[in-house]
Design a protein around this nucleic acid. Structure first.
Lengths: 187, 187
DNA sequence: CAACCCCTAACTAACGATTGGTAGGTGTCT
DNA sequence: AGACACCTACCAATCGTTAGTTAGGGGTTG
């Protein structure tokens, strides 16, 4: 597998965890998918907790980059708010997968502390970005931005969870539309 | 464990599943909690899938009764909409537990079909009741009731998930308040 | 009344599979 | 030579599940 084995493992683990959770991560299955043996994963990650934490950390690092890039390329905070649910939609498009943070929030009680921390950071990154963009778009009073950002994040997460349980992306789209007409998201 | 062993198992399994999911249900742990041996559970439930389906079914049956009772005792649909998030709040109060349906929606890909079906029914029951109450309260146009009901259910589920990942009920309360000020829930 | 039979509700003991993890060896490239 | 990437071969624990057994209560029958 060469020098990028670690990255390949991380990517495969992320996809599996988004479908079956941290508990559904198996060294043997993961190794088979990557094309090495289970014990070899220990050469890159000292334990399952380490792997889980690395996967979750990479997950919020990636979304942080993606969200900042969105803001930069569009240069339009209102457009960003319109596009935001798309980041969750894409997980559903990709094999009806869930946001890793949502899955780990459900599994929270079973997670090693290091994994818990990294999972929380994903939510923090999303809320911070949303709050910033809401203020830029003058969609809320600056003092209300963080509360509204959290509400949007939680609601979109819930929409993804619901749509997943129906294996039906159109349910996600309908829910997001519902958030707009009700005023949670700017119309 | 006399005649009500089956009920005792169901109740213990529900509590465990709300904390650790269907995958976190272990016959040995469950039996130890109830005070019998693992194999004895098979006298009451033919398989883990059977047990899981029975737990999920009982879960939506109970909430259906609870919601109808709320409507009857208050007689006030607006008051019902105000009280509704409380049903999710109580799971958090009880050991930071999650709605069983939410946990199973996350685990969806790993669930036996019978369990999937019963988990979906919980959402259906909630949405149907919410839609009915929204119309009674004249909070939305009758044609928009079901879409709004789904939006409320998904958003409240998301709020519970977020609060759980922080082990902080006040986050749930703040999110619900945010849904009210934004217009998703009637103020 | 007593013997019989079946049912319920539990038990002990083990099954094969899978889990995360460890020890130590092998080949390859610099 | 030595570091790196990966291997084989195991381990103890846990998983859902099965087989066979036991204790006791209820009904029917001689």
């Amino acid at each position: 597998m060469g020098t990028n084995a670690k990255e390949t493992i991380l990517a495969a683990a992320r996809k599996t965890a988004q479908a079956h959770g941290y508990g559904g991560l198996s060294y043997r299955d993961l190794a088979a998918e990557v094309g090495i043996k289970a014990a070899s994963i220990y050469h890159h990650f000292a334990s399952k907790a380490d792997l889980g934490a690395a996967v979750a950390r990479r997950y919020w690092e990636d979304i942080a980059v993606e969200l900042e890039a969105m803001l930069e390329t569009t240069g339009d905070p209102k457009e960003c708010l319109r596009l935001y649910p798309g980041t969750f939609r894409r997980s559903l498009e990709d094999g009806n997968r869930l946001c890793l943070c949502s899955f780990m929030s459900a599994e929270f009680a079973n997670l090693p502390e290091a994994v818990q921390r990294e999972a929380q950071r994903f939510a923090d990154v999303n809320v911070a970005w949303l709050a910033k963009v809401l203020v830029m778009a003058k969609a809320v009073k600056p003092g209300d931005a963080e509360a509204r950002a959290r509400a949007i994040f939680a609601a979109v997460s819930g929409a993804q969870l619901y749509a997943r349980s129906r294996s039906d992306i159109s349910q996600f789209d309908a829910l997001i539309e519902g958030y707009r007409t009700s005023g949670l998201l700017p119309a």
